[in-house]
Every structure is written in structure tokens, then in C-alpha cells.
Nucleic acid binder design. Sequence first.
DNA 1: AACAAATAGTCAATCGATTGAGCAGACATC
DNA 2: GATGTCTGCTCAATCGATTGACTATTTGTT
Lengths: 339, 339
Amino acid sequence: MSPPSPPGRATLKDIARAVGVDVSTVSKVLNDGGISVRAQTRQAIIDEANRVNYRPHALARNLRTQRTGALGILLPDLTNPIYAETVHGAMRQAEQSGYVTLIAEVSDERRSAAAYMRLVSERRIDGLIIAVSAETEEMMAAIEANPVPHVFVNRRSSIGRSVTVDDQASGRLAAQTLIDAGHRHLAFIGSAPELDTSRRRRQGFVEVCAAAGLAPVLDIVGPVSRRGGFDAMHKLLDATRRPTGVFAFNMLVGIGALAAARVRGVRVPDDISVISLDGEDAIFTAPPLTAIATPLAEMGARAVVELEAMIDGREPQDVVIDIPPKLIYRESVAGPPNE
Amino acid sequence: MSPPSPPGRATLKDIARAVGVDVSTVSKVLNDGGISVRAQTRQAIIDEANRVNYRPHALARNLRTQRTGALGILLPDLTNPIYAETVHGAMRQAEQSGYVTLIAEVSDERRSAAAYMRLVSERRIDGLIIAVSAETEEMMAAIEANPVPHVFVNRRSSIGRSVTVDDQASGRLAAQTLIDAGHRHLAFIGSAPELDTSRRRRQGFVEVCAAAGLAPVLDIVGPVSRRGGFDAMHKLLDATRRPTGVFAFNMLVGIGALAAARVRGVRVPDDISVISLDGEDAIFTAPPLTAIATPLAEMGARAVVELEAMIDGREPQDVVIDIPPKLIYRESVAGPPNE
DNA sequence: AACAAATAGTCAATCGATTGAGCAGACATC
DNA sequence: GATGTCTGCTCAATCGATTGACTATTTGTT
């Protein structure tokens, strides 16, 4: 036997030399490049390529073809499980489609613009999934200055396509669940209205409340984090007229709300019920959190599909994932206490 | 004014033409390339570069320099907060050092070898951080076949450098904490011994137990996940002689253990105490989890530093991060119940 | 036998940047 | 005025792969 593959650095030229043909012939054979080649020659090329374990040098190929085979993902924080789940779905799809993924974590806005420039203006990627919080001027300016196919995920945008879940339906389902359990005094813990996901969840929530003749508390806003939920719940518990049913913007907020109730000696669900979004994972809280599961991974995956469409020059769509939100009934919701 | 920067695609050639010099001159001026140039010419080049907002084409530059400016990170699961935190730290450091990061999430072993090959043999990266679970033959073979600078993070390896935290010290601290609280019947919930982190935590734990004349339960192993912790705790509670103090491999295991206790009506910490590793974040469990914080983000960052050293041809080290584990005393640990 | 057409390739430019070697002109030196 | 030394650049090869244009040989047709 010949020595095993030389240490991984065979080029087209090496193969061409070994077989005794031109590099262009090798390239065309290996890429189905519309050329007629004798079966014998073809086989010799393929055999040699296998023997040396040839892989095209991505940089060289990409330089020529003006494609990188890489997608970028811009997100604020990987340790946030909501993003992690979304990215998870996006990466799976990207891998299936033969793309590698470049992730840039960008905590603040100035840096997100800089990270954008880095990936885009050095032309390291073919397209970009944008999951940073809200539209900021820096970001928008960066995109206009240096356009690249891009898709916003879980947020609408005035300057591009977006893939979202049906937040209004989630809001409606949350309200309906609490109302069905008998609650009449509801509250929504959300974010400042810049986050369009919060606006839409709130809107669906209000809609169903209104239809039932209820006027929920809606002005409790803050960062959508455990800390934010913790603080918000405190505010609700301080109110002269406490709500008995609380809808939390997401799992983190829900977990924080639960913790605040616990600290205050308020029992869940005996004294107050809590329902949150995206809490599929929150089965290990105390009590286990009733939650509305939204298809985050599917959303991430679909964003990649739409992005590929843009890259291939097809006309992408604004997509709302049509998997309806799913209620996961656990212990944090029950009937209201007797007054 | 001239039109604002043309849509982000200026090349050296464009600048050279505008200024009236050769591209090589432009390149050398922009890169400090050891060449003498008149101040006037130099300034004209710099001005023009700024005007068109020139950024080098990463692919082209990298093709020539044989550097990609990219690091790869191989990890099993982004939704696992332990990995998320580590990657977080690694990405921060990478960004500071001017690298972009390519993340490949690889759930099973065959795919991790494939992902490795993808990134490495297409030469998309200069180096690789490996955080996949254990040494597997496929993986080792892939690395040998196609070597690239690489650092293992949070696990030792026979075939490369590694950056870890002091797991033994964590194990000792966990045992000491429980013993100091008065416990005599201890248990460790770990993983199968393939995971060297588990071996080392166990070792430290045993050491302190032995010094105190105790013989802890050590054979409860399983996947190091919430589910694994849940199941393991059930086994412990089924035992004829229940331990009163439990050390959980990590936060997920700890959370699962807490949930199992809750389901069984066993009170924490009244009936049983639980301490876990890496639970800095687990303040919102019920009860809040006493935990030992390990410097995960620092570990990730340091792994990148060592990797850079390898890439630059310096001799890297096996590193144990010397930030000592830190006890975060919360409610899940108390004295043992009276017998 | 002459010509067309199919077969089996080769040639050379190109993607955008980097880099060592080289060269023309200005100035100094003897 | 011949030689040497800077200064200030340019030339051309190179990284590895792709691709349209082109050529040489063989086969087929009349």
C-alpha cells in the first residue's frame, strides 16, 4: 500500500501531477463541470483524490466563486436559553444545507454594528441571521452601508425580511388559559414597547381580556430576564389590588416571578397563578411552570431557509411560523383564591 | 462631496487606480509593509482608503497568508448552560484577539468527526477549541489524519493541550461544606468514568470524606443532565440508608435532584441537603441551590489564549485555571435531620 | 479522401491581496 | 563624471480553485 493520505494538504495540482492531466481537468471532473473525459481518466482522478483524501481549499474556491459557504448569526447573549434554542435550530438547518456558521455575540449596540461590519465587509459570510434585540440606528446604518442578505429572527424589521412566531396567538392563549381557570384579575409582565415581540404578545393578551370584559394590568415592564421578572412580580404584589393570574413574557421572566412570590411567602398557585412563554424547559422550577411552548428551533431553522432563498436570488417572504403555540399545563396555574 | 462609499466593495485595485500607484504600494502602505513612501502619497492612499471605506477581502488575504483569522469551537450542545458559559468566555477572548468564531454543534460522535473534518480539512480555521464530551476514537482519528492546533477545554486529553478548572478542589470543597454542616452520610451523583471531570470531582470529594473517616456513596452515575439528576436522586432516596448530603456533578444534575426530592415529598434542606457545581445561576430554584462556582468563562477565554500561542508557534501549556472554586451558600444545604 | 462533428482534454485569465526582487531617478562623494 | 547610496516606488509570482475559450485527436459521414 502507498502511504496513507499525506497530512491533509493535497491540492488540485498534486492530483493533476499524479494522474498526468491538467488541474482544470481535475477540477471539472471533481465538480461535474460539463466536460467530457474518458472513463479511465475520470476514474484515475477520482481514485487519486480519494487516496490523498482531497478536500477543496475553502478559501481558494470561495475567492473564485464569490461564495463563502458560511452564514453569520448575530445575537446578544448565548447564555440566554431562548437564543440558545433559536440558534440551535438555525445551526442544524445551516449544517444540513452545507453552510458553516459564524456566531457573533454582541452585548451592546455599538459592538453589534462593529461585529456586523467585521463579518460583512470582510466578506466572510454569504448571509446573516440577525437576532439582536431591537432596531437601533447604528445597526440599521451599518446594514445600509454594507448590505448583505439578511433575515431578522423573532423580530420584525422595517428594513428586511423576518421570521417570527405567532406572538399574538400566544398572548391570546395565555389570557384564555387564565380566564378559563377562573381568574378575573390578570397582569402581563412585558418589556418596554421597543421589543415588538412584547407588543404582540401583549396585544393578543389584551384582545382576549377585552372580549371577556377584563382590564388587565399591563404597565409592568422591565428587562426580560430573571431579575426583571423578580422585580416586576414584587411590584405586582405591592399593588393595592393584586392580580391573581400573571402572564410572563418568557421563561426567564416567569422563573423570576416565581422566585419573587416565594420570597414574599405568596404561594403559587394557591395565591397567584403564573403562566409564561417559552418555558418548555421549566419543568424543574418549583412549582413546575405552566408554559406556552413556541417553536423557537423551527423559527431559527426557517430563518436559515429564507436566508438561503435570498442568497440564491429568490424572493424571500416574511414568515410567521404556523406551528400554533402549545399549552403545557403544569402546576403554576390553578383557580383563583376565594376572596 | 463625492458620493458616499460605494456599496462596500472597494478593492486595493480601486484605490491604486484612484491614487495613481500600484496595488502593491497600496497594500504596503495599509499594512506597514516595510517600504518607504512619500508622506504625500501615503496620505493620499490612506485618505482614499477611508473615503471608500476599504476593508481587505478576508478570503483573498487569507489565501495568500495562509491564515484565516477564524477559530472553531466544537461543542455538543449550545442549550446546555455550562457550555454556553464556556463558549461565551471563549468568544469574548477570540473577539478581543481579532478572531471570528465558527461554532459547530455536534450531538453525536460520528458527526463530531465529520464537523471536525469540515472545518479543518477545508482549512476554514486556524485552530480549534474542543469541548465535546470525551475522547472518542473517531474524533482522535480525525485529529490525527488532519492535524490543526487544538486545545481541549474542561477535559484532559492524551493527544493535546487542555485547559481545565480545578475539579479536585471543587470536589474537596463540596465534601468539606457538607461535613462542616454536620453530615456523615454523603453521596456523589456523577457521570460514567469516561468523563474525566467527573473522575476528578469524585476524587477530591472522596479525599476529604476519607480524611473525615466517611465512606460516601459514589456509584450513582448517569447522564449529567436534569433528567440524569432526577433519576439519580430517586435511586438515592430508594436506598435503605439514605444519604443526608448530596453533591451533584453540575447545575443541571442539581436541579434534577431537587425536582426529584420535591416529587417524593422529601424536603430540602430539612431532610436532605444538596450542593452542586456550576450553579451560580441556580438562584431561582426552590430552594435556591447551594453551589460551587467554577470559572467557566475564564476557562473558555484561557483556552483561546493557549490556542493562539499554539497558532503562533509558541509552546502551549496544560493549564488549570487558578481561580479557586467559590462556595455560594444558599438554602439547599443545612444540617442533617435528627435521627 | 475530404470534411464535419464528437471526444478529450489544455490554456490562460481570474478572484483580491501579499511580498521579495528589482529599477529609475535624485543626491552625495571622491 | 563615474560610482555608490538612498528614496520611492513597480513588477511579477503566488496562494488554490474555477471556467470560458480553444485545440488536437479520433470517429463518422458522404
